[in-house]
């Protein structure tokens, strides 16, 4: 089929998704990217955030990625995630708690090392929340 391509999402622990898709939307390090079939070869780092996959036939799947890489070839997209999970498995309360904790650590910023780690944790928690909210918004609409 000309208007679809293969998409593989893998994390270090497991294969998360593999199948034929029409579009992939991911948050690249320099901004969000929408990949359609026949895209030019591209390599990008990924920010922590949601990855949306529109499957053949319009069904949509959401994933959460805490950073990683994406490789785009005209007929195959590979996402090498540091840690990925299906967005529906995400827990909003846990994410909110992680955000609060990260914020607290951020404000204390006792040492340089803790500071950078706290910043990374905060970014991740915010990204998780963003994924959940996106999912919720869509559910509300549908």
């Amino acid at each position: 089929m000309a208007n679809s391509f293969t998409c593989n999402i893998v994390s270090a622990e497991a294969s998360i998704f593999s199948g034929t898709v029409e579009q992939v939307i991911a948050s690249g390090i320099m901004g969000d990217l929408g990949i359609l079939p026949g895209h030019a070869p591209l390599l990008t780092e990924l920010k922590p955030g949601p990855v949306r996959v529109i499957q053949d036939g319009g069904k949509e799947e959401n994933f959460y990625v805490s950073g990683g890489f994406m490789e785009v070839q005209p007929d195959v997209v590979t996402i090498l995630a540091d840690a990925a999970s299906r967005a529906s498995d995400l827990n909003e309360a846990a994410a909110e708690e992680a955000r609060q904790q990260a914020l607290k650590a951020f404000n204390e910023k006792s040492t340089e090392l803790d500071y950078t780690r706290a910043a990374a944790e905060l970014a991740e928690a915010v990204a998780q929340l963003r994924t959940i909210q996106q999912l919720r918004k869509k559910a509300g609409k549908g």
Binding site: I29, M30, A40, P41, L42, L43, T44, E45, F69, E71
Partner: peptide, 10 residues
């Protein structure tokens, strides 16, 4: 490839 951010860092 197109590289984001740039080839070296990536």
């Amino acid at each position: 490839y197109l590289y984001e951010p740039d080839a070296k860092a990536l």
